[in-house]
Structure formats: C-alpha cells, structure tokens
Design a protein around this nucleic acid. Structure first.
Length: 266
DNA sequence: ATGCCGGGTGGAACCCGA
C-alpha cells in the first residue's frame, strides 16, 4: 500500500481553520506535518481534526512558531524540540518528532520549522546556522537506526537557483546565503534525499509566494518547504507533489502543502 | 533603501515573517 505524508506551513492554524479543514478533507493524507500553527497546544483545533480520524501531537507556542504532527496511525512516541548542548535553552517551538508502526518496524517523522535567519549578519542568522548544525547532529544519530525517516517542513532554504523564479532577488537574503545552502547540502551529504528532487529535475516548482507585491500573480515563488528521506524511506519513494492550487484559495497561507508517497505496509 | 500583506498580541501600534 501507499502511505501519503504531507507538510504545510499553515501560517496560523486558527486564522486558517476553514482553509485547513477543507484541504484536510480533500487531500486526506495519512500523516500531516504542520508548521507555524502560532498557538499554544490548547488553541489547536484538535476536535475537528480528530473527528477526521487523526491522532494529534503538538509542540505549540504563543503567537509564533509551533509545529504539529497529525496521523491516522497511532503516534507511539513523541519528542519535542531538538537536543540542546550544556546550558543551552531553546524557547522556540520548531521541531517535533514522532514514530508510527509499520510492517517490519517503524516510520519516524519530524516536523520542522527552521528559523528564517533574516537579516543576515545578525544574531538571527547565527541562530539559523546553529539550529541547522543541531539538526545535522540529530539526523546523523537518527540515520544510525537505519529506519525509514522523514524530515518534513519549512527549511527556509532555497537549495539551488532553479528553486527560485528570480534567484538574484534573494542574493542578500538568509534563505539563499552560501552558508544556508551549504548547511542544507550537509544534510544531504549525510545520506538524506530531497524527495521532490528525486522525483523531478524540473524548474518552476515553488512552495512559497509572498503575500506582498503580487508575488502569486507573477508566480514569483521559491521552493523552501522540503521533505528529506533516509535511504530506507527513499527506497520506498513513489512520488512527491506540490499542492500549488491551494495558494489560489480564499484566505491562503503564503506556503502550500507538499505531499510525498511511500510504499509501506502498515 | 523601504514598504508592499497578513497573522499575532492586546486593545494602538508594533513585532515577525520571507
């Protein structure tokens, strides 16, 4: 059978409730990773989501950030936040890890909201790069398990010029800095596969269009929402698609969902 | 060089995003 896993930066789940529920009913993925829910756990619309058959795991935050994993399969293990070093504190809710059972083992899922990092040259950019290094170290440890693993979310990185309509516009932006792109490449060098790029080398595929300056109307987009796969997941990849049409709906998020399909028995 | 738009908080004007 095929398991479908989606990721979507929803830009405020409460402001997006109608759009979100409409999409969830239509697309009906087995697993959904959400970012920027922008609410504490108690503010998440768990009841209507559970009514559609989903289990809900949350790592919320007041006003900003916040990630979630929804799953039609039971969530057996949930862990909030990336590991921290000695004396390190991270008050930002940007990472949520969960495990579901599949035939012969488990499927491990991480919902990720990587820091934007703008403007460059500030502590925000340093925080982004430090966060990416923490993610790299975590992924390195998890890959030792040799199990199907997905890191799905808003990476806030434009990996290559082909992933932007106008790459030169982003040359001074944290999303397209050499350091940001190198840190993304370092994740791939661990053995992780960019699911969309494993499916196609076509240009013009974007997941974000700014609300401002008519970016959507001009198709001035960037591809910054990604799904990275461990070798055991990549071997089962059946396809990856971007739900572009959702950007044209009423009250859209500025991001659209990305869906990957894996051949896995449950 | 900055704002554009939109969500959040808190109850106006400001922070934040990408």
């Amino acid at each position: 059978m095929t398991l479908s896993i989606a990721t979507w930066n929803i830009n405020g789940v409460r402001a997006r409730l109608d759009t979100f529920m409409t999409w969830l009913r239509q697309a009906s993925p087995d697993i959904v990773c959400l970012q920027e829910i922008k609410t504490v756990d108690a503010g998440f619309p768990s009841e209507p989501v559970e009514a559609l058959g989903y289990n809900v795991a949350l790592h919320g935050q007041k006003g900003f950030n916040g990630v979630a994993v929804l799953s039609k399969l039971p969530l057996e293990d949930v862990s909030r936040g990336l590991p921290l070093g000695e004396d390190e504190v991270d008050e930002q809710s940007r990472f949520l890890e969960a495990v579901v059972s599949v035939q012969g083992g488990v499927l491990r899922i991480a919902s990720l909201y990587l820091p934007n990092g703008n403007p460059i040259g500030t502590d925000k950019f340093a925080y982004k790069l430090a966060f990416m290094e923490r993610l790299r170290r975590w992924a390195e440890e998890r890959l030792k398990f040799e199990e199907p693993l997905l890191i799905a979310g808003d990476f806030n990185v434009i990996p290559h010029p082909i992933d932007a309509k106008n790459p030169q516009v982003w040359s001074h932006d944290a999303l397209f800095q050499p350091e940001s792109r190198a840190a993304f490449a370092a994740l791939e060098h661990l053995g992780l596969t960019d699911a969309l790029r494993a499916s196609t080398d076509a240009g013009g595929i974007y997941t974000f269009w700014d609300y401002q300056a008519g970016a959507w109307q001009k198709d001035h987009g960037i591809r910054i929402d990604h799904v990275l796969l461990s070798p055991e997941a990549a071997d089962r990849l059946e396809g990856a698609t971007v739900e572009k049409h959702v950007r044209g709906w009423e009250k859209p998020s500025d991001h659209v969902p990305v869906i990957v399909r894996l051949g896995l028995e449950t």
